[in-house]
Amino acid sequence: MQEKPWKPWALLAPSITAVFLLLVIPVCFIVVYSFWLRAPTGADIPAFQFGNYQKFFADFFYPGILLRTIRVSLETVALCLVMGYIPAYFFYRSETRHKAALLLLIMLPFWISFIIRTLSWINILGDTGLFNHALMRIGIISEPLGLLYNEGAVLLGLIQYLLPFMILNVYVSLEGIDKNLLEAARSLGCTEWQAFREVTLPLSLPGVSAGCLLVFVLTAGTYLPPMILGGPGNDMIANLIFKRVIGTLDWPFGSAISVILLGLLCVIIYTYNRYLGISQIFKSFQGN
């Protein structure tokens, strides 16, 4: 089959056409549209001007939301790392017979709709939710605590959505470590903790950084948890895009915000790829 050099191209043609037509060209459209004008009547006027970007950076309102997006994304990354590394390590070292089942459970949330996972927190944190109900039952509080519609609730929703990504990335990386290395370290006199710190931890860093990047990128582009679990002050940049495009139909400004979000992510992904390589990211998906 090697003698027909056109063959792989024929196999690839439909996919490449689809991605070009439905992704590359539309994204270019966003960039073009972001320079257009919006007439007071609501019509879009083709133009080349930077008014939409000037509007974004005119005062602190929009840049504040951009900064909040970055801050919330970093918080989510840190919390996912803290909550995810230990379970991943547990899967790696555990010799339980149920390891496959436990790993399957971690992947289970991928199969459950994002909107259900997000709204499920209302049942826990709401005024009549599990938490308030339990606390009032015990008698610690008499009035329900306002646990919803703040940044904490948004973070819980985000972590629940993204934690499996982090755990899987770290686990895939840990699983690739030769266990003989650990035994060698132990037989040379390392304590368990030293062996972890000197051998396992450094070798798992590719998975850690891949997980961090994935969690950051996915958080920065999401609007559902702030919309459902957050209050008016918890909007992130994706909420802004949603409101401008679906709410006020301001396409040029919505496009400009999209370009700014895309630009932020491009800088981060480019820097990451430059120093660490992007291919690790895709490994965790192939485990499924």
Binding site: L12, S15, I16, V19, L22, L23, I25, P26, V27, F29, I30, Y33, V217, L218, A220, G221, T222, Y223, A238, I241, F242, V245, W251, G254, S255, S258, L261, L262, L265, I269, I278, I281, F282, F285
Partner: peptide
């Protein structure tokens, strides 16, 4: 390069994808 191109939709936020296709 082509493999990366075909995998990029994972890294592009779905909001942007949504707006882009709708605009198109």
């Amino acid at each position: 390069a082509l493999n990366t191109l075909l995998l990029t939709p994972i890294m592009i936020p779905e909001v942007v994808l949504g707006v882009a296709l709708l605009l198109f």
